[in-house]
């Protein structure tokens, strides 16, 4: 099997100059999974393949040993893991044979920014109409919303740390926007 390398992350050209608090993460396996929640065989098979109980509460993240799953819609999840997606896709395909599912490697479809530090919240307030206040949004939560004018998934991964999943073609727009939003707080440019 051919290797997907050299892998150039979509925002690499601008990410070098990001201020402290903003980075573009190295690539990781991203697999979009759709299936019928009501069929227990589906949940069981996914658990077998990934070790994860898929989150059924909207906008929640379930984390397992090697993977995590982000709720995207009542029949859709984004699975994230380290390394290449092929293995995960195969495991899922095998476990779910015969079921009505859709499994897509989307590792290249989005890039992931990590926003961290004391001003992460402020940057999100500048960039999104969603309420990221700690009372409403906490580690283990994810949301699909707009960052500036681009669709994005935001996942809170720590008290002051967020992962922002952005469609590759929008990544420079969003990356530059976030970097500029941070600049006000005196982070070295």
């Amino acid at each position: 099997m051919a290797k997907n390398s050299p892998w150039i992350t979509p925002a690499a050209a601008i990410a070098r100059d990001f201020p402290a608090g903003l980075t573009e993460l190295s690539p990781r396996a991203q697999v979009n999974l759709r299936g019928i929640l009501d069929e227990s065989s589906f949940m069981t098979a996914v658990k077998t393949a990934t070790g994860i109980d898929l989150p059924i509460t909207p906008n929640k993240v379930a984390t397992g040993k090697d993977h995590k799953a982000l709720w995207l819609s009542p029949d859709e999840w984004l699975l994230i893991g380290e390394g290449e997606a092929d293995a995960l896709v195969h495991r899922l395909e095998n476990a779910l044979t015969g079921q009505h599912v859709a499994i897509n490697d989307v590792s290249a479809n989005r890039t992931i920014f990590e926003l961290s530090g004391p001003h992460g919240h402020h940057v999100l307030m500048k960039s999104s109409e969603f309420d990221f206040h700690p009372r409403v949004f906490a580690p283990g939560d994810c949301v699909q919303t707009l960052i500036a004018k681009s669709q994005a998934i935001v996942e809170q991964v720590g008290e002051d740390a967020f992962h922002i999943y952005v469609r590759s073609s929008f990544s420079r727009y969003v990356g530059a926007w976030l970097a500029e939003a941070l600049a006000e707080y005196g982070a070295p440019a």
Binding site: K3, N4, P6, S168
Partner: peptide, 29 residues
């Protein structure tokens, strides 16, 4: 070119055309 690819034989020009698809991150390569 050493990349995992799908190649489509379609044509919007009327000429022999191959549309080579590789993961986005390998596009420039």
């Amino acid at each position: 070119a050493g990349l995992k690819a799908r190649v489509f034989r379609i044509s919007f020009t009327g000429e022999l055309t191959y549309e080579i698809n590789v993961p986005w991150t390998c596009g420039q390569a």
